[in-house]
């Protein structure tokens, strides 16, 4: 396995020429990014943010207008850099004349996976995504979700060190989404790296070690989920069992907290971050039992919204916030 970063981008950028007059349109501003080996890296942003452009440059579909990037230590333009990379594009399109098994055999051949490994791996992958029953059906008869599942199989047919997935949850039912989430976690557990983009922010938040937010082709923030969202930054949620014959509202006032819910002798309170320790000590000193303590943090959705608003306010050229 590669020891250094699996993806390094230094100033990678892309300008498209569109329309009759070939007017320039910047799809991606210079991007500096590094993805550590063995990690899950989430890539988020609104439509047109440059996520797919970045991914397509990294896997050799698009040509960058400038900058440099390495994938598994090799120049991203070198086809050999992709030998141990698995890639699934957004809305995957496959040859409709092939069956699922034939498709995986074809991609296995492109990676020069020898037999019988190729067919064994194809069979195992189809079973893993619950598609073994459709292995011999032509792809033209597949539903969108089935294509997405077979797309994930083709991304893993070469036993990759790095898996790049563009919107892997798109078009999947809740069962399919759970399956993809499990697969991503399995890949990480096996020591592989996963770089994925998604609009389903909850998945990105729960799966990723690090997250990058792209808005308008610019990197706005990048860092660990904890650092970006700030654990405890929105206060601490306390669940208390109160002494008999005490009013939850008066307890909330005493602790300087907001009463969220009260039921019988239980109260759910939210304490500002700077008063959390004092509130815990006071409540215990006054006879309450602490049942649960949860640091509250902003959601990725809130962070993304604030980044989009900040970009709209004209701070688009501000350098990205890079958290540890």
């Amino acid at each position: 396995m590669s020891e250094g970063p699996v993806i390094v981008s230094r100033g990678l950028h892309k300008t498209y020429r569109t329309g009759f007059w070939m007017r320039p349109h910047v799809g991606l501003h210079p991007l500096d990014l590094s993805v550590a080996a063995g990690s899950i890296f989430g890539f988020v942003g609104p439509n047109g943010a440059g996520k797919t452009t970045t991914i397509k440059i990294l896997v050799g579909i698009h040509e960058a207008s400038g900058g440099a990037a390495t994938v598994l230590g090799l120049d991203h333009r070198d086809p050999e850099a992709r030998r141990k990379v698995g890639f699934m594009p957004e809305r995957p399109y496959f040859y409709p004349h092939l069956t699922g098994a034939e498709l995986l055999d074809f991609y296995g051949r492109l990676f020069e996976v020898p037999e019988p490994t190729r067919s064994q791996r194809a069979r195992a992958l189809l079973e893993r995504v619950d598609m073994a029953r459709a292995a011999d059906q032509p792809l033209r008869s597949y539903s969108k979700g089935m294509l997405q599942r077979v797309g994930i199989c083709q991304a893993l047919i070469n036993d990759p060190q790095l898996v790049i997935l563009d919107e892997p949850m798109s078009g999947l039912d809740p069962l399919g989404r759970a399956l993809v989430r499990d697969l991503i976690l399995e890949e990480k557990a096996a020591g592989r790296s996963v770089f994925f983009s998604s609009h389903i922010l909850h998945d990105v938040e729960t799966l990723s070690d690090r997250v990058a937010i792209l808005v308008g082709g610019r990197l706005r923030s990048e860092g660990t989920v904890e650092a970006l969202l700030g654990a405890g930054s929105k206060g601490v949620e306390l669940e208390l069992r109160l002494p008999a014959n005490t009013a939850p509202a008066s307890w909330a006032a005493r602790l300087g907290a907001e009463l969220r819910r009260a039921e019988g002798d239980r109260a759910l309170l939210v304490v500002p971050p700077d008063r959390a320790e004092a509130a815990v000590a006071l409540s215990q000193a006054q006879g309450a039992t602490l049942l649960r303590l949860t640091p509250l943090r902003a959601s990725l959705e809130e962070l993304l919204m604030s980044e989009i608003q900040a970009a709209g306010r004209g701070s688009a050229t501000a350098p990205p916030a890079v958290a540890p």
């Binding site: 397509k56 050799g60 579909i61 086809p79 992709r82 890639f87 995957p92 399109y93 991609y107 990676f111």
Partner: peptide, 14 residues
């Protein structure tokens, strides 16, 4: 046109 090329060019194929 059918974008089938995406999953071929993204393999180690010059």
């Amino acid at each position: 046109e059918h974008r089938t090329i995406y999953t071929v060019i993204s393999k180690p194929i010059p």
